[in-house]
Amino acid sequence: MIAFLIKRLMHALVVMFVISVISFAIQSNLGDPIQQMVGQSVPESERAELREELGLNDPFLVQYARFAANAVQGDFGYSYFFNEPTTDVILRHLPATLELVIATTLIIVLLSVPIGVYCAIRPRSALSRLFMSVSIVGISIPVFLTAIMLIQIFAIGVDFSPFPADTGWGQWLNGALSTEGGMPSYGRGNDLTHLFGTWDSNFFSLEGLTYLVLPSLSLASIMLPLFIRLIRAEMLEVLQSEYVKFATAKGISRKRIYFVHALKNTMLPVITVGGVQLGTMVAYTILTETVFQWPGMGLMFLEAIQRSDIPLIVTYLMIVGLIFVITNTLVDLIYGLVNPTVKLTGKPA
């Protein structure tokens, strides 16, 4: 176990090293940070001075060595835009992203398992078919489009009145097709609960929760259908297996077969995919956070790119790399718990 964790730690270091080299190597293509800092009428001589001051004229290797020497001591440099250590900036933006990811994960777990299992048990029912066709639509629509549609329908409101408003049924139909709007359309709101450090939470008040609804729904719109389909497919396969037939023959209740015996084996591949998808979700937060102006790491990263804030870009990429390694490690650990026959590397086989 310990050996496994140490090995993973080494992996993380290698990943972060490689990411830092790559992101440093492409920085000349990220644009000129000086341009973003000064006004249009600043003469070239002033710009050159500032460039020299920031060390941007040094050769690549010198710049990288300077960065690496500081980085091993935990100093990842200063963001050009925020004028603060990049790690502070990221730590301040991290809670918002984590809350969004947690809310989305909750939605996915709470909905995908029952729906997926239901669709596997009753594959021919009308409801299952409905779930399946809706999920195809969900997978096919890009996240930002879903987000904009959600904003239009639930935040701004839609006034759709194709039916005569002077009849009772027309009014009812118009009412059913139109929405009032009123959901918050951007940001995290003001009613946050301070937890600790830089962490302010949306989870502890009703108003805070309303701000989470639309962003987490749009973020979930890609993953949720994927998991429903995955769980359904796995479950269908498991239900065909010998031990389920045996359990049925033995007279164990259907409920127990479905939710204890079959589900446990269904979850193995789901956990693997889930771990990988968690990393992908971090990537999708960039889109979702941009549309909803959610003040998390994704929005921060996109803006850092627009501002050529190179130290912040590099630090963000390294931290995301770290998150990937950590989630994969956790997935492997959980895997071992769910299925004891799986051996972690480092243990004698």
């Binding site: 904009i148 904003i151 239009q152 935040a155 701004i156 409101g157 709007g181 009123g182 959901m183 918050p184 359309s185 951007y186 940001g187 941009t290 549309v291 909803f292 102006q293 929005l299 803006e303 627009q306």
Partner: peptide
């Protein structure tokens, strides 16, 4: 003053009354 860089979001924020 809230910065909203994304054009569509800025307009939505106004239209939805935020």
């Amino acid at each position: 003053l809230t910065p909203i860089g994304e054009n569509a979001t800025r307009v939505s924020a106004l239209l939805s009354g935020d």
